[in-house]
Simulated assay, not measured.
Amino acid sequence: MKKRKLITGMVVLLMGISMALSAQKKITGIYRTMNDYLDNQLAYPADSSHTPAIKLYTLAPKSYVTLQYKGEHLHLNKNEIFAYRLTNGEVYRIIGNHSYQVLNNNARLLLYKRKIPASPKEGPEDQFKYYFSPGNGNLQALTAWNVKQAFADHATLPDQIDALFKRDAELLTYDSFHKMYKLEWLLK
């Protein structure tokens, strides 16, 4: 019985440590606005002697993030941050209490993905939901209908979407020749 309690205690301790570590992420900087992101202008950038870290408070949501920068702990309101860039180059936009990975760099249309928590029964593959925002607009589920509504003033986009994409999942088709998503190309 004592051995079982010890093992259970160790498992809980290890889970707590791993959750605390995953809550703080090493970053190369923060984008305060969409224009900063489009122009690659980082605030609080990493340098050779220091890599900043950001704590997002996902388990117990707060209205701010804590940035560990050059020995200081700074509290930045989430609504004053557009996105942050991890050390591996991935960029995540903060909206509410969630982070969405930014997939492209386009002033008219930003595409995102967010990992969906899944049970172990569903298998080891990561599952994602996809979103978009027209320019600096609101985040919406990436569906043909939502894209058509967001760009209703575009003369040919609704017909092009109907002709080129049979399912919503196809909206994320990447055009390797133009080095952009086909949906971005249609908006040019």
Rank of each mutant, 00 (worst) to 15 (best):
Q101C: 06
N88W: 08
N88R: 00
N105L: 12
G89W: 08
L76W: 09
G96M: 03
Y84M: 05
E90F: 13
N105C: 11
Q101S: 02
N77R: 11
L103Y: 02
R85G: 09
N104W: 09
E90D: 14
R93P: 03
L76Y: 08
H98P: 04
L86E: 14
E80I: 04
N79G: 00
N104V: 06
N79F: 02
R93I: 02
L109E: 05
N79E: 14
A107P: 11
N106R: 01
V91K: 04
A83I: 03
L86N: 09
N97P: 02
I95S: 09
A107Y: 15
Q101V: 07
N79L: 09
L74D: 03
R108Q: 15
L109D: 04
H75K: 10
H98T: 01
A83G: 08
E80G: 08
V102D: 02
I94K: 02
I95W: 00
L76V: 08
Q101M: 12
L86W: 07
G89R: 04
A83H: 00
Y100H: 03
H98I: 00
Y92A: 10
I81N: 01
F82T: 02
K78C: 07
I95Q: 00
E80A: 12
I95L: 02
A83C: 10
L109M: 12
L103V: 06
L74C: 05
Q101N: 04
N77D: 15
N77C: 08
S99I: 11
I94N: 00
A107H: 15
Y84R: 00
N79W: 13
N106C: 07
A107V: 13
N97D: 13
N104C: 09
R108D: 15
G96Q: 03
R85M: 15
E90H: 13
V91M: 05
R108V: 11
N77A: 10
L76C: 10
R93N: 11
S99W: 07
N79K: 14
G96L: 01
V91E: 08
V91H: 05
T87W: 10
L103K: 00
G89L: 07
H75M: 14
H75Y: 12
I81H: 01
R108Y: 13
H98R: 11
F82Q: 04
T87P: 02
N79H: 14
R93Q: 04
T87I: 08
V91D: 09
F82H: 03
V91S: 05
N77H: 12
Y100V: 01
Y100M: 00
Y84P: 04
V102Q: 04
A107N: 15
Y92V: 03
N105H: 12
R93W: 03
L76P: 09
V102G: 02
E90Y: 11
Y84W: 09
N88G: 04
G89P: 06
A107I: 12
R108E: 12
Y92F: 15
N97S: 14
T87N: 04
S99H: 07
E90C: 05
A107D: 15
N104F: 08
N104E: 07
K78E: 02
R85Q: 15
L74V: 12
A107M: 13
N106E: 10
G89Q: 08
R93D: 06
L103N: 07
E90A: 09
